[in-house]
Design a binder for these strands. Structure first.
Length: 213
DNA sequence: TGCCAGGCCCTCTTTAGGGCCTT
């Protein structure tokens, strides 16, 4: 399968709430590396921040306060996952959410959060406008993506998002006769005019047989 | 089952409002 050799990291956070600004903290993170059209590696860990997990979140994610008591410290986990990802560009489903926790948790350990995020939810709105909705579970069913475990656990959701990303790359390459669909093109497409994606592809400068340096 | 926030998108819009999506 002709795909870009670049490595993209797909991440997913489980958290105690919806926004760091309201005191929410990460409880689990997973990162899945995608390269050459397939998943090649992954990192996943619970993380102990001292934040309390509400009954609602425990039911949603299956992550309990007791589970976090024996988890490694959040700072250690963030250093490890940052090293695992390196300088790879990032992808997440509804990336605004994961980006907010990525930046907040890294800032707590004095790390710069400079990574570029592409968003499979925004891309789905462009590529699959007829989908009933753009939730991760709906898109996984629509594309018959392989099951990856319990939904709302970080590694399972990151794996599904990675499979969705690979599906999107294949669809973009097929639809526009491209040899690859690199992260930079996805970043352009996710903000392109819905009714003129082809023009966005053309502006990006990709042609069959060409590659981005 | 859903509230919290915030970025994005659409439209009965743009001097705005409401829905989507994430936990």
């Amino acid at each position: 399968m002709p795909t870009t050799p670049e490595t993209i990291a797909v991440i997913d956070f489980e958290t105690t709430g919806l926004a760091p600004a309201t005191g929410a903290r990460a409880t689990e993170i997973a990162a899945v590396l995608v390269s050459g059209g397939q998943i090649v590696d992954h990192y996943a860990s619970l993380m102990r921040s001292g934040a309390w997990v509400s009954p609602f979140i425990e039911r949603l994610t299956g992550i309990s306060n007791a589970m976090l008591e024996s988890a490694p410290p959040a700072g250690q986990v963030m250093r490890e996952v940052a090293a695992f990802i390196g300088s790879s560009p990032l992808v997440a489903h509804n990336a605004a959410f994961d980006r907010s926790f990525w930046c907040a948790e890294l800032q707590r350990v004095g790390r710069d959060a400079h990574h570029r995020f592409a968003c499979t939810m925004l891309l789905s709105r462009r590529l699959y406008p007829d989908s009933a909705n753009h939730r991760l579970g709906t898109l996984a069913a629509l594309h018959r993506l392989p099951a990856s475990g319990r939904a709302h656990r970080a590694l399972a959701d990151a794996r599904v998002t990675a499979q969705l990303l690979l599906q999107m790359q294949r669809d973009v390459m097929s639809r526009y006769a491209l040899p690859q669909a690199p992260h930079a093109l996805l970043m352009s497409l996710q903000r392109a005019a819905r009714d003129n994606l082809a023009a966005c592809v053309a502006r990006h400068g990709l042609r069959e047989g060409e590659s981005i340096a």
